[in-house]
């Protein structure tokens, strides 16, 4: 591949992710509104929020790390998007693979954790402690799923995973081949998105939005951007592993949005679990499902 082509891909992939992510945020809020018989926000509401937050005239920083934390949170996702293949663009997906992607997506969280840590606000610290706990909870089923998929396709290269699924049509999709893992993956997805019933680390009424408690202005704006990336990454990863990736942009976007509808519809029907209940929940059903699925993959 020519370097200029690569450079264009590397620029476009995060941009696409951001734009799609904005739409996904809007969809999430719309779904919530419709479920509550509300009208919901206007089309550009996610953008308004971000622009407003960046445009705040006075903003509070708790120190360099607080700022770097946001830089890492956004920058880490910008980097991670280039490892996630989309139709026609592979970026550097072949140089990393799914394990690298999985670990790279921890970088934004780590950055956020650093930034929050410096805020010296116990609500934030509790939030991070809960977020990490949640990660421990949902990553176990997630890792089982990833291991199953990697073994099934015999590779950790996401480009190969997509190619193999697209070669055989729907019958070779991960979701068809490994339905149990796909279901387990949905649980993990719910946890990954941090939506109800797993919304333990935001918990506005309890710990004042946890990690976000001291975030205002562009600090919060950065986190809104990060949320766009987060939704995009989770959904596209799921599409890549189980739904054959994107044959073309239309199919790709349709799948990506469709995948998100499930956790979002569930989210607004439930209250929040307590931390320990979330752990119990995620270590029980999806893990059992995943392990059974894994046994089928292995055989």
């Amino acid at each position: 591949m020519h370097w200029s082509e690569l450079a264009i891909e590397l620029t476009l992939m995060p941009l696409v992710a951001f734009v799609v992510g904005l739409a996904m945020v809007l969809m999430m809020r719309k779904i919530a509104a419709r479920l509550q018989r509300r009208v919901g926000p206007p089309l550009l509401q996610p953008l308004y929020d971000i622009v407003k937050l960046y445009g705040k005239r006075t903003q509070t920083s708790h120190g360099m790390l607080h700022e770097i934390g946001i830089v890492m949170a956004v920058g880490g996702y910008v980097a991670a998007e280039t490892l996630l293949p989309v139709p026609g663009m592979n970026g550097i997906a072949e140089k990393g693979g799914m394990i690298t992607l999985l670990y790279l997506t921890m970088i934004p969280s780590l950055g956020l954790a650093l930034g929050v840590g410096q805020c010296a606000n116990p609500n934030g610290s509790i939030g991070i402690s809960r977020a990490l706990t949640a990660m421990l909870a949902y990553d176990i089923p997630l890792v089982i799923v990833i291991a199953g998929v990697a073994i099934h396709f015999g590779t950790t290269n996401l480009v190969d995973v997509i190619a193999q699924q697209q070669a055989g049509g729907i019958a070779t999709w991960g979701a068809v081949q490994m339905p149990l893992l796909a279901i387990a993956g949905l649980f993990a997805l719910q946890g990954m998105l941090g939506k109800q019933p797993f919304e333990i680390y935001v918990a506005p009424a309890e710990i004042a939005t946890g990690p976000m408690v001291e975030m205002g202005g562009k600090f919060l704006g950065g986190l809104f951007v990060m949320q766009c990336f987060q939704l995009y990454t989770a959904s596209v990863l799921y599409v890549t592993l189980f739904l054959g990736g994107g044959e073309n942009w239309i199919a790709f976007l349709a799948k990506a949005f469709a995948v998100l509808v499930i956790p979002m519809s569930i989210a607004f029907l439930f209250p929040r679990y307590r931390t320990e209940d979330m752990i119990t929940m995620l270590w029980k059903w999806p893990v059992v499902l995943g392990l059974i699925g894994l046994a089928f993959v292995g055989s």
């Binding site: 590397l10 705040k56 920058g75 880490g76 562009k218």
Partner: peptide
């Protein structure tokens, strides 16, 4: 790519949006 990402993140953060001011740790919610 990670460093490039951080670079973009830094540009987004430091060059865009309003100014920020560092406050004492006791100025806290």
């Amino acid at each position: 790519i990670l460093l490039a990402g951080f670079g973009i993140g830094a540009v987004l953060f430091y060059l865009m949006g309003g100014r920020s001011r560092r406050v004492h740790q006791l100025d806290n919610y």
